[in-house]
Design a binder for these strands. Structure first.
Lengths: 151, 151
DNA sequence: CTATGTGCAAATCCTTTGCAATCCA
DNA sequence: TGGATTGCAAAGGATTTGCACATAG
């Protein structure tokens, strides 16, 4: 945790940005909720618990800043608001994917990079230099299979 | 074209919805722009050329309706507005993917379903019944490779 | 005829911005 | 001290909704 914060600070410093207390709070909230997909407002509420004087605008600006440095990523699950997750690169983990249950809305993380071979092919066939990808798979999770038309 | 319109009409009818002239215009615009990724407002402007009295709200409502019936899909390219594309299932084509150039913003369609084998694995390992997927690959298109830090 | 569809304008929701105050190197 | 950071309130932009009228079946 401390290590990651230090690294982020270094990243910011390298571009003349400061790691302020407010920014650190935002970062901590994101780090402590790696498994979640918080919206800006959710981050705001969590930061507010520790630093009640924070403003929503600051949270938005901080998220934007982190996003620009690839410290976090935004994901869109179609609910009309951006959601943020700590970028795996920073921890040495793989980029992950999401399984989204159309019935109960559950989101399952897939912590494997399943696309290596596929990327090679695309990269070759389309003469496209890949830096990143995002895969969402929709369907029914184990709890909901067979329930499709129940309600 | 006529065939597709007929099928959509049948789909709507089956659920007590009518295929009105306005809805048909929206559908035609989408069909004629399969290769594009129109926003609601862009659809509105195109429909307006043929049916000047249409309202933006109607376009939104129609897109929502078509979306609910899986006639079209929404895609999000992170520019803050939903974009719509005619759903490939209806034409027997494969679901396709998008390569997004981070430099010039170009969007390249990949009209192959590259995920068959991968889906099998996920479906098995996560006990998840897949109905659909969405893959976005970010990077640099052939025109932009090597230009990353130019501007 | 009656429910459904539609246009318009107002309302909402998320996000961004302007600006004056504050903070930190 | 001067530029970066912040809070607040206002602005912005996309989408939705309320309501009276128009229309399809």
């Amino acid at each position: 945790m401390r290590r990651v914060i230090g690294e982020v600070e270094k990243k910011l410093r390298a571009h003349e940005y400061k790691m302020t207390p407010k920014r650190e709070h935002v970062l901590r909230v994101l780090l402590e909720n790696k498994d979640k997909h918080l919206s800006a407002e959710e981050v705001y509420n969590l930061v507010k618990q520790r630093s009640p004087d924070v403003g929503l605008a600051t949270v938005y600006r901080t998220l934007e800043l982190f996003s620009n440095f690839n410290i976090i990523h935004t994901v869109d699950f179609g609910d009309g608001r951006k959601r943020f997750e700590f970028g795996a690169e920073n921890t040495g983990e793989h980029r992950h994917h999401h399984l989204i249950c159309r019935h109960c809305g559950r989101i399952i993380e897939v912590n494997e990079d399943l696309l290596g071979e596929l990327e090679e092919r695309v990269s070759r066939d389309y003469d496209f230099s890949i830096s990143d990808h995002e895969l969402k798979i929709y369907g029914l999770c184990c709890k909901c299979t067979g329930k499709r038309d129940e309600e």
